[in-house]
């Protein structure tokens, strides 16, 4: 486009970024794929590690602790994404009106996402504390029995889910609200003139129009839900037992506590493949929607 631009200029502008990505991201990922075929512990150089083929992967399939933590991860992701979507979109639909103080809510709502996950974990661990925590104190002052928030397997899982919902519902809310406010006015007014009630408006006009954004939002959240680690690490460290040990945590413990780098790499690979499928699904969904929108537009123009 700039005819007189030096042919090399774009490459010069790109070079540093490409160099860093190759050295610090692509190479490590490739390295990890290779490492997953090795029996490797942290005191060895990678060249000294023994090549074991697919043994790590085969072991994974028979490893009950791994399968358990895979189950925990899937359950965690499914529950938090569903609850957060329902809450976030519901709140957005409810609060999509001119209210004073909306900007305060939006600002405060970003806070849980901005502060360190470590700190989020700390806050919740403190609130869940059996004696000094505010939750059990409140229960006690109401004359109820204290709840073993983090010390009982079932409760610990619930507690972790609650903390995640607190932290990430605002994300969905903000995106859903942005989507709502960019909907075409005309469609809504037409529906209202035709006598649609509030519920019909939401069900047949707003939600379908928001759907593309909502699906992308849900997928982004799903991807992030598989990455949650620090909050759970601080709150329960995966316990009690394996009740809250999500995959990311299992990988980090396999690498640092059990010192089996190859095995951890194999786990990482599986997690990565899982996420890759989700990401590709999202990307192609975006493509399909774009194509459909273009086709509809083209047809509309033909009709006109």
């Amino acid at each position: 486009m700039l005819a007189n631009a030096n042919r090399l200029t774009p490459y010069l502008f790109l070079a540093p970024a490409v160099a860093i990505l190759v050295v610090a991201l692509l190479y490590p990922v490739g390295y990890m794929v290779w490492a997953s075929f090795l029996d490797w512990n942290p005191s060895q150089r990678i060249g000294e590690a023994e090549f074991v083929g697919l043994r790590n992967y085969v072991n994974l399939l028979g490893d009950e602790a791994f399968l358990e933590s895979l189950g925990v991860t899937l359950r965690f992701a499914a529950i938090v994404v569903t609850v957060e979507m329902v809450l976030g979109v519901g709140l957005a639909l409810l609060l999509d009106r001119q209210l004073k103080g909306m900007s305060i809510l939006r600002t405060v709502f970003i806070l849980p996402m901005m502060i360190a996950p470590i700190v989020v974990g700390l806050m919740w661990r403190y609130m869940y504390h059996p004696t000094v925590g505010i939750l059990n104190r409140t229960l006690k002052s109401m004359g109820l029995d204290p709840v073993p928030w983090l010390s009982d397997g079932g409760w610990a899982f619930t507690s972790v889910v609650i903390a995640d919902i607190w932290q990430w519902t605002p994300f969905i809310f903000i995106l859903a609200l942005a989507a709502l406010q960019s909907l075409p006015r005309s469609a809504m007014e037409a529906a209202r003139i035709d006598g649609a009630t509030g519920w019909q408006l939401i069900l047949y006009i707003k939600l379908p129009l928001m759907l593309p954004v909502l699906i992308v939002t849900a997928l982004l959240r799903l991807i992030d839900a598989f990455k949650v680690l620090e909050v759970i690490l601080v709150m329960t460290n995966g316990g009690p037992g394996l009740s809250t040990e999500i995959l990311a945590l299992r990988i980090s413990r396999t690498a640092s506590e059990f010192r089996e780098l190859g095995y951890a790499a194999a786990m990482s690979n599986l997690l990565l493949i899982l996420l890759m499928v989700l990401t590709l699904a999202m990307f192609f969904y975006g493509k399909v929607m774009d194509a459909r929108a273009a086709r509809i537009r083209a047809e509309a123009e033909e009709d006109a």
């Binding site: 991201l25 990455k227 990988i251 690498a255």
Partner: peptide, 12 residues
């Protein structure tokens, strides 16, 4: 999409 946990082993 790449979680930090996945980078842990190779980066180390």
């Amino acid at each position: 999409m790449v979680p930090p946990a996945v980078l842990l082993v190779p980066v180390f």
